[in-house]
Simulated scan of single mutants.
Amino acid sequence: MSITKEVEDAVLDAGRRLADAGWTIEPIDDVPLLRDAGEVQERLWLGDGFPALADAVARDGDPGAQAVVDGMRAKVAAMPENVVVASLVRRTTLTRAWRLFLAEYPVLLLPVSGELPFPDNLDMQGAAGFQRVWDAQLTMRALPAMGLPGLVVSTGMVKDVPVGVQVVAGHFREDLCLLAGKAIEERGAPPSPIDPAM
């Protein structure tokens, strides 16, 4: 997954904050098949009943929902008939791999998105804009497919744009997400006051 330098810096900064709080930090070059999990999620979302979904979206007239339908139409057309059953089997395999990984590394810091927040409505500005958003938000699509708990923690601002990290733990270990999130927040700069004019 490609990430911008600002996003990478936020993840590294969050790791330093955890180290300062006494956590043992290890850089990890690879995690179990995140892209496969993202594909499982999109197949489960869209692999059954897509024509009815597309009709409902067209009737509703929501441009954001229409951008998703348009952006995924070709992928859905190429899905096999047994896509849901095959995806459920694949999800079981991926979930096992993630359970084993998180038994060794109980907390994982990941980007929330590969990029800083996008310009408004980028996903509705053609196929390239949609794909850019879709690709950058892989972690937000992949991890829920396996039911893993996650927590987004702000690490600060880059110019006038917020940036943060995603804290992920094993099943039923929301407590670890909260403990890590608290340690990250406590060792950061005080939050900027919210401007009511914005």
Rank of each mutant, 00 (worst) to 15 (best):
T93S: 09
L110Y: 03
M146V: 10
H171E: 13
C177I: 07
P162G: 04
R96D: 14
A128L: 11
Q166Y: 07
V161Q: 12
L178N: 08
K159R: 15
L109M: 10
V152Q: 09
Q125R: 15
L109A: 01
T95W: 01
S113Y: 04
V165R: 02
F172C: 09
V161S: 05
V165C: 05
G164R: 08
V161M: 12
L178A: 12
R99M: 09
E104D: 14
N121G: 04
R99V: 10
E115L: 14
V152P: 03
V153D: 09
V112C: 12
T155Y: 12
W98N: 01
V107R: 01
W98P: 03
V112Y: 07
P149E: 09
L122Q: 14
D160T: 13
V153I: 15
D120Q: 11
L110S: 13
L151C: 06
R99P: 01
L178G: 00
V112M: 13
G147H: 12
L178D: 08
V153C: 08
E185P: 03
L109H: 03
M157V: 08
W98C: 08
L151R: 06
T155R: 04
R141G: 11
W98D: 01
L178R: 09
P117E: 08
L179S: 08
A128C: 08
G114R: 07
L122I: 13
V112P: 00
T139H: 04
G150H: 08
V107T: 05
A97Q: 14
R132H: 14
V152H: 02
G170R: 08
K182C: 04
V165E: 05
L94G: 02
V153W: 10
V158E: 06
L116Q: 08
E174F: 03
V165H: 02
F172P: 00
C177M: 04
L100A: 10
E115W: 04
V167H: 02
A142E: 12
P119Q: 14
P106A: 07
L176G: 01
M146P: 02
L143M: 09
A127I: 10
P149L: 11
L108W: 09
A128V: 15
R96A: 15
V163H: 02
L151H: 02
V152S: 13
P144G: 06
R132Q: 15
V153S: 02
L178K: 02
E104N: 07
L179C: 01
K182G: 05
V153M: 12
L100V: 06
K159C: 02
V153G: 03
M157F: 15
L110W: 01
G147L: 13
V153E: 08
F130A: 09
A97K: 11
H171G: 06
K182W: 10
L151W: 06
F130I: 14
I184N: 00
P162Y: 04
M140P: 00
R173C: 10
R99E: 13
M157A: 02
E115C: 15
D160K: 14
A127V: 12
Q137A: 14
G164K: 07
H171R: 11
A97E: 15
S154E: 07
A169Q: 04
